[in-house]
């Protein structure tokens, strides 16, 4: 069996686009999270909603910052 070259799981030309899109979505969700935290009162707040917003935002921010690092040449 001939050796097969190994490539990155995501094409490298997508890194900047992915970084911008995922960071934008992540930051919007973060903003929503903090606005919700600040405006809702103790009674009306729902923990499930807070946790889901936080989790989804951190997934987007995490991948977004990874692609930002990769596109700026810091190959982790």
């Amino acid at each position: 069996m001939a050796p097969k070259p190994i490539t990155s799981p995501v094409p490298e030309v997508w890194y900047p686009t992915l970084a911008v899109v995922m960071l934008a979505v992540g930051l919007v969700l973060t903003a929503f999270f903090f606005i919700y935290e600040a405006t809702s009162s103790r009674k009306t707040r729902s923990l499930a909603k807070e946790l889901t917003t936080g989790a989804v935002a951190s997934v987007f921010l995490g991948f977004g910052s990874l692609f930002l690092l990769l596109s700026s040449g810091v190959y982790v």
């Binding site: 992540g26 999270f33 935290e37 923990l47 936080g54 989790a55 935002a57 951190s58 921010l61 910052s65």
Partner: peptide
């Protein structure tokens, strides 16, 4: 996953 857990920690601290 490390980056995600970092951000998640931030949000959990907020909560």
């Amino acid at each position: 996953l490390m980056l995600i857990s970092g951000f998640l920690f931030l949000f959990l601290t907020g909560i």
